[in-house]
Amino acid sequence: MSRDLVLGAIRRSLGVSGAEALRRTAIEDRLSRHPRGVVPERGALPPRKRLNLFRDMLAEASGTMQEVASPDEVPAAVAAYLRSKNLPLQIRRGSDPRLEAIPWQNEQALEVSVGRSDGNQLAAVSHAFKAVAETGTLVLTSGPDNPTTLNFLPEHHIVVVDAKDVTGDYETVWDALRKKVGKYFPRTVNWITGASRSADIEQVLLHGAHGPKGLHVIVIGKP
């Protein structure tokens, strides 16, 4: 009933019935074509420069980035990051095939568990779907292999991304996601730009409000 009330009131205000063919075509057209607006030129760069822009923008949002040549080097990079933060050598990760393929056993001291976070983990490793150089933003999608809790509950979040997945702008990411999943979206798409922060107390900027205090990105391969 409320539905008819609300829609009826909107239609009265607009002076329309809702059946106008032109209006219907207008919205159907926009929804199916989803035209792009103006995409800032900032991210339109050759791959190496694009990755550098990602690194710089991420640094502004107080995230760090390192490059490794292959997945084989990820365990050592993860262990080095944990040591630099004086954290125990333990991580929780999802079962993303790209994370499964990493030879974690190479780093013998590193304890790796798989699954969602229940709030007791200090560090987690996720694999990003894409990264956006424009603002140093990571894009992560939820699914059986990618628990969203890993992005928010641990104190440190380490995100692995392939160098070829670092795009210039968000629009490229949307097109890639549509291509991958079709019409039906994952429950959660997270854009993450830096570490959790708050300035709610006297406008003093502090990190680790509710989400991770630290965000570290490991980029695999040549851009």
């Binding site: 949002a61 939820s142 059986p144 798409v189 997270n190 854009w191 959790s196």
Partner: peptide, 24 residues
């Protein structure tokens, strides 16, 4: 709003957790 290039967390939520999702 805050003079940030982008806020830290921009989250797009669609429906409840999917079959097989470990959380949500």
């Amino acid at each position: 709003a805050t003079g940030q290039e982008m806020s830290v967390y921009t989250t797009f939520s669609t429906g409840p957790r999917r079959a097989g999702d470990p959380d949500g």
